[in-house]
Simulated scan of single mutants.
Amino acid sequence: MIDKLLQDFDISRFQHDLIQWYQENKRDLPWRKSQDPYKVWISEIMLQQTKVDTVIPYFYHFTEKYPTPQKLAQAEEQEVLKAWEGLGYYSRARNLHTAVKEVVAKYDGQVPSDEKHLGKLKGIGPYTKGAILSIAFDQPVPAVDGNVMRVFSRVLHIEEDIAQAKTKKLFEKVVGEVISKEDPSSFNQGLMELGALVCTPKKPQCSLCPVNEHCQAFALGAEEKLPIKSKAKKQKRVSYVALLIQDEQGRIVIEKRADNGLLANLWQFPMVPIKEVGFTHLESYVYREHGIPIQLQQKQGNLRHVFSHLIWEIDIYQASIISGEKFQKNKQLKLVSKQDLEQYPFPVPHQKMMKYI
């Protein structure tokens, strides 16, 4: 199939046109200032499912705080999560931290340039591996993400469903054939840049595209019909009551989430799955689950937070610990002052609740 797709495709001219355009038009981004594999790695992890403008300040802060693999490996996980706070998809930070520790322990702090060793590190999939090897080490390894699949689905008029794993494998083979051996770094970054700036999901700017003469979809007027992607499953909605519980000294109850799953090891204000528990049983549920005797007070507000697969709909209430009752010790719970809240990593929806305290 690859031979058929590339039968009349001028690979060397395509490489030339793409790389020339990239070198003349690339954005001035902080992770492009060097080929340091550690910094390339951090940027690629941060950029997963996150916009460039959002990542830039986090990249500066994170690399200033942890300028070397050794510095990151020495850090406590809670500290790393705090540095990542607000960027979302926190498993990225935990996996990066784990993998960097392995790099320091096994490879003397040098990010491996070997495809096999690099690919075994936690959190490094085929795309991230290809990005690091091509950008930092100038190796002609494909780095195929949604941007790249969109570009090549249009250029080669590929009508396979890009939501399927086998289609991604097909694009990896295509890019493996087409990638520049002389400048794989500029080639892969050029594809990413083209997808981000010109060959966009909606209303691609084909008249400005440096490779439009190679593009079959453009020739057929079919660029907006591609890529083909089956719809993801509908997001599940879950309703919660979040409790801002304070004691007589004004200290606030915070809860550490489980060490696996969604938002693992982050802190939050206690949340009650209200449809399961029922509003009338809320106080007894909190006592049963957490050992805290509370009195519910007024509602402060509500918010909605959208994850890729889930929607949280949260009503926010104040509550107080009933005077004279003992707060039962629980390693997942802490009583902290308002000033000390900023020492703990909180997910975005819980950061937004702090204005009500």
Rank of each mutant, 00 (worst) to 15 (best):
I321Y: 02
F269M: 11
V306W: 01
E172I: 00
Y22H: 04
M192C: 11
K329I: 00
E255M: 13
A75Q: 05
Q297R: 14
I2K: 09
Q332K: 15
T280M: 06
Q74E: 14
E64M: 12
V336N: 06
R237M: 05
V238F: 05
V198G: 10
A75R: 05
Y22I: 00
S153T: 00
L262C: 01
L47E: 05
V272G: 11
I322A: 03
K229H: 02
P349R: 13
I135Q: 07
D17E: 14
A99V: 13
P140H: 07
I132R: 08
L118S: 13
R13Q: 10
V104E: 06
P140V: 03
P201E: 04
E255Y: 12
Q35Y: 03
K169A: 06
S230T: 14
K256C: 10
S185G: 12
F346D: 10
L170S: 04
D28Q: 07
Q235G: 01
L96P: 02
R150V: 07
Q78P: 10
S180I: 04
L244G: 00
G278R: 13
L335R: 09
K299N: 06
K51I: 02
I179F: 07
A232S: 12
A264G: 02
V253Y: 08
G324F: 07
S337E: 08
I314R: 00
K203H: 10
Q300A: 03
V241I: 15
H350V: 04
Q318C: 00
G130F: 06
V198R: 10
L5D: 00
V272Y: 11
K71Q: 07
N147L: 05
M46H: 05
M353H: 10
Q246A: 09
V348R: 15
G250W: 04
F279H: 15
F327T: 01
G130N: 11
A264F: 03
E325K: 14
F137G: 08
N212K: 15
I357E: 00
S239H: 15
V80K: 01
V55C: 07
L296A: 05
D3T: 01
K173T: 11
S12M: 06
Q20D: 11
N147C: 04
R304L: 02
P112E: 14
P273N: 13
S207C: 00
Y38K: 09
I228M: 08
P347T: 13
S320I: 11
P204F: 01
Q332L: 08
K168R: 14
V104N: 10
R304K: 14
K202Y: 01
I294C: 05
D28K: 08
A131T: 09
L72T: 02
E283L: 11
G291N: 01
V178H: 05
K173P: 05
N265S: 15
E79Q: 09
P349M: 12
Y285R: 10
Y285K: 10
Q300D: 00
W21V: 08
T68F: 01
A99G: 14
F152A: 01
L303G: 03
D10G: 00
I228Y: 12
D259M: 02
A222K: 14
G301P: 07
Q300S: 04
Q189S: 04
